[in-house]
Amino acid sequence: MKVLIVPNFSRADALEGARALEGWLLDQGVDVLWAHDKKLFPGVDDSAEGCDLVVSLGGDGTLLRAARIVGYEGVPIVGISYGHLGFLTAAGPEDLVATVEDALAGELHVSRRATLDVECEFERADGSTYVRHGFALNDLAVARGGAGNMIEFDVSVSGKHIDRLRGDGFVVSTATGSTGYALASGGPIVTPEFTGMVCVPIAPHTIMARAFLTSPSDVVEIEMSPERPSMRHFFVDGQPIAREKHSRGVRATVRRGRGDVILLDRSAQSFYDSVSRVFYGQVGK
């Protein structure tokens, strides 16, 4: 067997846990790989190819990095929380070895999470365009830039124009991402079994705009208005989509990804346990 360890390299306790886990795995005859520290090796792409399990040690951001590494490979991910909330993680540091042992034995609950395929179009200063693609477990966010000006954009679903909005931006999330930026923008908490998309305006300059849900087969398109060329940014799971200098985003197209991410947790009720703990006053209880 082979396990990929993805720690939060900025947390000493997560690194300590990762080293302890590596020692235990090696004693069990399990091969161990480490993801690279992105600050020291920013150009290195990690892979989960050939791995049987990926262990994330950190917060939800670290687990999202693990999901980007796995992509559509179908390698299960188990998260150990060293962060503030740990909404997506399965256990805390005190249960590290026991949780990984159960994961390797196939004794944890399997939660299949829908993903997003994101296509962002950018325009260069000379008018030519190019496209960047992204993979998301949580969301795509279109957001205003550092100048602070509102952005104006059109939202369409499967070719049907919904509205032209002004505001701080727009979030298209999975059910998994519904408890992230989408929730902070006023969207609903959605069960992981939902495989459509959650669409939420960010601080819209109208009292009419509301969050809405799509079907799994829908395609959401956000097109920036040429009449208001404000600075704007495109983010996938909180990470900016790489773009060339002196170009600007003009369109984002979002559809359901071609595969799911497999998260391991203790039971089918783990999601609601986390909802109660994090969002209904049970944090730390």
Rank of each mutant, 00 (worst) to 15 (best):
L64H: 10
A67V: 03
R68F: 01
R68Q: 13
R68P: 04
I69P: 01
G71N: 10
G71C: 09
Y72V: 01
E73K: 06
G74N: 14
G74V: 12
V75W: 03
I77Q: 13
V78K: 14
V78Y: 08
H84C: 02
G86A: 06
G86W: 02
G86N: 07
F87N: 11
F87L: 10
L88K: 10
T89A: 14
T89E: 13
A90S: 13
A90L: 10
A90H: 04
G92R: 08
E94V: 07
E94L: 06
D95E: 15
L96M: 09
L96Y: 01
A98N: 10
T99G: 14
T99Q: 12
E101L: 02
D102I: 00
D102C: 07
A103M: 08
A103I: 03
L104I: 12
G106W: 02
E107V: 02
L108V: 07
L108Q: 10
L108G: 03
V110R: 15
V110N: 07
S111A: 14
R112L: 15
R113G: 07
R113H: 11
T115S: 08
D117N: 04
E119T: 05
E119D: 04
C120M: 09
F122G: 00
E123T: 03
E123Y: 00
R124P: 06
A125V: 09
D126T: 00
S128M: 04
T129R: 14
V131P: 12
R132I: 00
R132F: 00
H133N: 07
G134D: 04
F135K: 04
F135H: 02
F135T: 03
F135C: 00
A136H: 03
L137R: 06
L137I: 10
L137N: 06
L137H: 06
N138C: 08
N138K: 01
D139M: 08
D139H: 04
D139A: 04
A141P: 03
V142H: 09
V142T: 09
A143G: 02
R144T: 04
R144K: 15
G145P: 01
G146V: 06
A147T: 05
G148R: 09
G148N: 02
I151G: 01
F153P: 12
F153G: 12
D154H: 14
D154G: 11
D154E: 15
D154C: 05
V155E: 15
V157L: 04
G159H: 06
G159W: 05
K160E: 15
K160C: 02
K160R: 14
H161R: 13
D163N: 15
R164W: 03
R164N: 11
R164M: 07
L165Q: 15
G169R: 00
G169D: 10
G169H: 05
V171I: 15
V171E: 10
T174L: 12
T174W: 11
T174P: 10
A175G: 09
A175W: 06
A175F: 03
T176C: 08
G177H: 11
G177N: 09
S178Y: 08
S178P: 12
T179P: 07
T179K: 04
Y181C: 05
Y181Q: 11
A182H: 10
L183Y: 15
S185G: 14
S185R: 05
